[in-house]
Each structure stands twice: as structure tokens, then as C-alpha cells.
Design a protein around this nucleic acid. Structure first.
Ligand SMILES: [Mn+2]
Ligand SMILES: [Mn+2]
Ligand SMILES: [Mn+2]
Ligand SMILES: [Mn+2]
Lengths: 224, 224
DNA sequence: GGTAGAATTTAGACGGGGCTAAAGTACAAA
DNA sequence: TTTGTACTTTAGCCCCGTCTAAATTCTACC
């Protein structure tokens, strides 16, 4: 029941694609996310199918089996817990932790991850606002809508990001857009979906529709 | 300047053998420590020599180059810092940490290890009493002699272990032999080198010569 | 100085994970 | 219903790190 680093990363990739775009997951989608050639993906899919971690029909994409999905969520659990550790304990910025956690997630030790979880006080969300599965693989989705779907004058709290690239996160930092920040939609430009925002006690500023579609928020229902 | 997991482990093995038995280091010694076949060692030695990490003459063993030694000490630094983290922060016992650190030591990130070092308050010794090299690879040897070389009625502090196996460390735990413990030699049995010890406010008990030769102590010079 | 036995290296193989080039399949559009 | 094109798989190759079996070299002892 122990898998190689490559197998784990493929399972995680399939999981993430399925989560976002549904099932079945195509060879080319995996290829793009993993930065490998489609032929390499096909090779790996055969191996994962042999181990019954995925259901695979030639030319028709794949989906994770129960075992495969469980393995993927455990890897995600480890990834996100390590990210918490790096930010909370070692003082890393949220744009620096992904690449390191990409390595740390493969450390094999159940005890280690459980103790890390306790050490961090069993966090429910990682530094990017993503939910952390518990030891059984279960997690609850965060309530969220896209910032781009907010109406004029609505207020909301930033709870997550869709993009995880360093450059995007650094852009958010520069605009003081941190998780937990309260914001209000001051203006919506219909042509390109740009949105003018105001943070608590700050000057309004503009973000592109492109950016607005990468931000998850929880709407604040006004106390009547 | 980035090396594979296998290369790193070989460099570390060569370093450790050289430290204990001097140079040159034989293929069979590496083979035994690494739990691989001699033929595999020879293969790797060629690769390491090509990368100028070792000096290698066929049939005559190897020694580390300056670069190779530096790489080895950096790996040891990482290994020992992670061991500190596991014991100090996550509450692992000293007999559980080696196998996990064996994986963690290969995580590639200079920033990570420097921050970990700071987070742990720049420890100078790991949970087994072994010195931790600084970021430049330098460390100072602990002052030590073998417990088996102590004379009758001499007092000393336990500062290190030569064996790092779980079973040995657990044996020490059972006899309350922890690092920092003060002990006195109550009796030496010349036939097999067994030693009767007394810990501070404890009953005397016997350890074999075999065990006595695995323990490093710092002698206490009586205040006159 | 010659030689047996131990240590070491070479030869050839394999599984894991990647690649390119070529061939096969699916599907939408004509 | 046929066909063009995009997607996917196959075929064949490579590098890494390991192995076994066979050949080579060293060395200690006669
Ligand atoms: Mn990974
Ligand atoms: Mn994250
Ligand atoms: Mn290791
Ligand atoms: Mn140690």
C-alpha cells in the first residue's frame, strides 16, 4: 500500500482535474497539469489501472477508484498541513510554500502527519484557504462564490484563491488582498468585468475581471 | 549543483565510514552500510567520480573531494536538524526519528533548512548527541571518551551514542540512560568488560562491555 | 616469486519514469 | 456517410539505480 512519488502526483492531478472539470479526466488534461508528454501519461495510466487506483478505458479518460481517491486526499492532506507548518511556524509567505510542500507531501509516515496535525492545532484550511482533509480523508467544502459574481455594493470576505501561482499571490499581497479581508464592490465595469473594490478603511482600487474570477469570497449578509 | 537522493545517501555513507575508519573507503564497506550489492556501489562510484564528488581509483577505494565532503555535511546538517524538530516540537522519541529524517534530509530548499535552524534556536547537537554542522558545513567535535574507558569510581555525563538502532536506544531508555545523565562507575568486571553503574539517586545496575563501548561520556573532574 | 582466495569490477539485464515519432481512434462537420 | 483533425496510444528509445553472474585484480601467505 505504498506508492511512488510519481504515482502519488498523478493521483493528485487526476483528483484535482476531476474536482474542477468533472469526470472522466482526459490524458491531455493530466499531461498539461503534470508537465509531461501525453505518451508518458498513457504509460502511467496503465500502471495505475493495474493497481486498481483508477478506472481506465482506452481513449475515454479515467476516474479514480475509491482507493485512488482516498490516496489522493491523503496526499492533499499532507500537502496542506505542510503548507500550514511553513507559514505558521517557519514564517514563509503564502506564495513560497507550494513548491516545498510538493516535496514534503511525499514523506512516508502516518505518525508524522498526525503529530504535525496536532502540533498545528488541527487546522481546517491551508494558507490559500483550501480545506484540509482529516485522517480519514473527509473534509467539508468551504462556502464560496466567485468575486466576479458579486453585485454592486455587496460586501464579502476573501476566503480562497483559484490561482496558486507565486506571481498571482504576490499581486494580491501588493493590493493588500489577504485571506479574511473584508471588501465591498464599489463599481462593476460591464465591458470586461473589471471590478472596483474597497477594503475596510482603504481607497477603492480596480482589479481586472481576470483577477476577479480567481478569487473566492463569502458574502456578508447585512445585519438588518 | 543538485544531486539525486541516491547520490546524497552514498556521499553521506562515504563520509561516515571515513569519519570512523579513515580513508580510503572500500566498496564493501559502502555496500554493507547502504545495504546494496558491491556491483551497485561500483556503478555509483563511477558516477560520483565523474561529478568530481569523490576521488576514485579502481580497486583502491574512495575518498570525498572538498565538494563531496561539503555536500555530505550539508546533508548531515539537514538530517540532524530534522531529528531535533521531530523530538523537540513533535514529541517523537529519539529511537523513532532516524528513519523519518532519512527522508526529510533530501528536501531541497536552503531557505527551509535555515528557517528550521532558527525555529529550533540553532541547536548544536541532535537528539543522539551528534554535532550539527552550521550552514557552512563546520561543526566542532564533542569532547568524549567511551564509557568502557572510564576507571573505577569515576563519574561522567552521558553525551552520545555510537549505535543508533531503535533496539539499542530503547534499551537505554529502559535503564534510564538518557543524554545528560550523570553516572558513576561502581564496578568493572575485567573478564568481559561489564560495568556496574549508578545514576544519580538510583540503584546500581550492570551493563555489558558491548553496551559500554557504544556510549560516549564526558568525564567529570571532581571539584577539589 | 607464485598463487589461492577475497575484494572489486565488468557485462548484461530489469523496472521505473520519462521522451519522440508513428500509428490508431473518435468525433464533428460536410 | 464519409472524412479531416485533434486526441490518444503504441513502438522504440534513454537514463537512473539496482541486480546476478562472470571476469579481473589485489594481497597475504607459502
Ligand atoms: Mn509532489
Ligand atoms: Mn495550498
Ligand atoms: Mn536519506
Ligand atoms: Mn541523529
Amino acid at each position: 500500500m505504498t506508492y511512488t512519488l510519481a504515482e502519488e502526483d498523478y493521483l493528485k492531478a487526476i483528483y484535482k482535474i476531476a474536482e474542477r472539470h468533472g469526470t472522466p479526466v482526459s490524458t491531455s488534461a493530466i499531461s498539461e497539469l503534470m508537465q509531461t508528454r501525453p505518451a508518458s501519461v498513457t504509460d502511467m495510466l496503465k500502471k495505475l489501472a493495474d493497481k486498481e487506483l483508477i478506472d481506465y478505458k482506452r481513449y475515454h479518460g479515467v476516474s479514480l477508484t475509491r482507493t485512488g481517491a482516498r490516496q489522493a486526499t491523503l496526499l492533499i492532506r499532507k500537502h496542506r498541513l505542510w503548507e500550514c507548518f511553513l507559514v505558521e511556524k517557519l514564517g514563509f509567505n503564502w506564495d513560497e510554500v507550494h513548491v516545498i510542500a510538493e516535496q514534503l507531501e511525499h514523506i512516508q509516515s502516518d505518525t508524522l502527519i498526525d503529530r504535525l496535525d496536532d502540533y498545528l492545532d488541527n487546522p481546517k484550511f491551508d494558507p490559500h484557504g483550501d480545506p484540509i482533509p482529516d485522517a480519514s480523508g473527509a473534509y467539508r467544502m468551504r462556502y464560496q462564490i466567485l468575486l466576479s459574481d458579486l453585485g454592486l455594493h455587496q460586501r464579502a470576505v476573501l476566503v480562497g484563491v483559484r490561482e496558486h501561482t507565486s506571481s498571482f499571490l504576490q499581486y494580491l499581497d501588493q493590493n493588500h488582498l489577504a485571506l479574511g479581508a473584508t471588501l465591498e464592490v464599489v463599481e462593476v465595469l460591464p465591458y470586461d468585468g473589471s471590478v472596483r473594490l474597497r477594503l475596510s478603511d482603504g481607497e477603492p482600487f480596480l482589479i481586472s475581471g481576470q483577477v476577479a474570477r480567481q478569487l473566492f469570497v463569502r458574502q456578508i449578509t447585512e445585519a438588518t
